[in-house]
Computed example of a mutant assay.
Amino acid sequence: MIDRVITSGTFSLDGGTWDVDNNVWLVGDAREVVIVDAAHTAGPIAERVGGRSVKAIVCTHAHNDHINAARELAELTGAPIRLHPADQVLWEQVYGPEVTYEPLADGEKLMVGGIALQILHTPGHAPGAVCVHAPDLGAVFSGDTLFKGGPGATGRSFSSFDTIIASIRERLLTLPSETVVHTGHGESTSIGAEAPHLEEWIARGH
């Protein structure tokens, strides 16, 4: 139902470049999947998809390391790219205006393999950042909004610490405590493991 592919490459923003490993999540069943974040290299992701149909390529946000395989994967699979339009400025840094996507909306529900995926707009790390909640699976795919040990980075352009804290408090920490958090980088965690530390993050962030 949930599968992970780890791909490696670089993240570039504000004139800096960093080596990163990204988690690419496949959610679905034996017939169809949704890909959460098309990072770095299309080949290994397409290989893991196998013969299944891809219903959508959902981008949790438009930093280059989360979308740089999206166009190629869309061409390989015929699946639409989905992104919250508030990240248009970041999208255009990678693809310009000529590569298009279908807008994601807060509260939208996607169905794949009988599983409901609900889109939660969680700005802060990026203006159009979203998390993908799969209540049937007791999981949320958090992109770079929430990690094991704290919120995503907010020190670069188009990000805001106060906004990401509000998003986590209002949209994520209200989920059941046993909800597994599948992150954009690194290890998974749970809402229950992260919730007690909110005030520490706020103190540290300010």
Rank of each mutant, 00 (worst) to 15 (best):
H121G: 10
K148S: 08
T179G: 13
T145N: 02
E178M: 04
T163Q: 15
K148T: 00
S142E: 08
A139V: 14
L120K: 11
D136R: 03
P127E: 15
A134Y: 05
D136S: 01
T122S: 07
L146F: 07
D144G: 04
S159F: 11
I164Y: 05
T174V: 14
A126M: 07
P176Y: 13
T145W: 04
V132F: 14
L120E: 13
I165Y: 06
H133S: 02
G152L: 06
V140P: 02
S159C: 01
G152Q: 02
E178N: 13
T154M: 05
I164S: 04
A126F: 05
F158P: 01
V140E: 07
H125E: 04
A166K: 10
S167W: 12
H133D: 04
D136H: 04
G149L: 02
D144Y: 00
A134C: 00
T174D: 08
L120Q: 10
F161D: 11
F161I: 03
G150W: 14
T122Q: 06
R169C: 07
F158G: 02
E170L: 05
E178L: 09
G149F: 03
L172E: 09
G128V: 04
R171Y: 12
R156G: 06
G143N: 08
L137A: 11
I164M: 11
A166L: 11
T179R: 12
P151W: 11
P151N: 12
A129V: 01
R171K: 15
S160L: 06
L146W: 00
L146C: 03
T174K: 06
C131A: 15
D136G: 07
A153N: 14
A129P: 02
L172G: 08
E178Y: 14
E178P: 00
H133Y: 03
I164W: 06
I168D: 01
G138D: 14
K148P: 04
G152P: 04
L172H: 01
L175A: 00
G143F: 03
L120A: 06
V140R: 10
G128D: 04
I165R: 10
T122M: 10
C131P: 07
H133N: 05
L173C: 10
A126V: 09
I168A: 09
P151S: 12
T163Y: 13
P135W: 14
T145I: 09
T145E: 10
G124P: 02
D136P: 03
V180H: 08
S160R: 06
L146R: 08
A126I: 12
S167A: 15
S142H: 13
G152C: 09
G150N: 09
P151T: 10
P123M: 11
G124T: 05
F141M: 03
A134L: 00
T174C: 03
G128C: 05
D136V: 05
H125Q: 08
A139R: 15
V130Q: 07
K148L: 02
E178G: 13
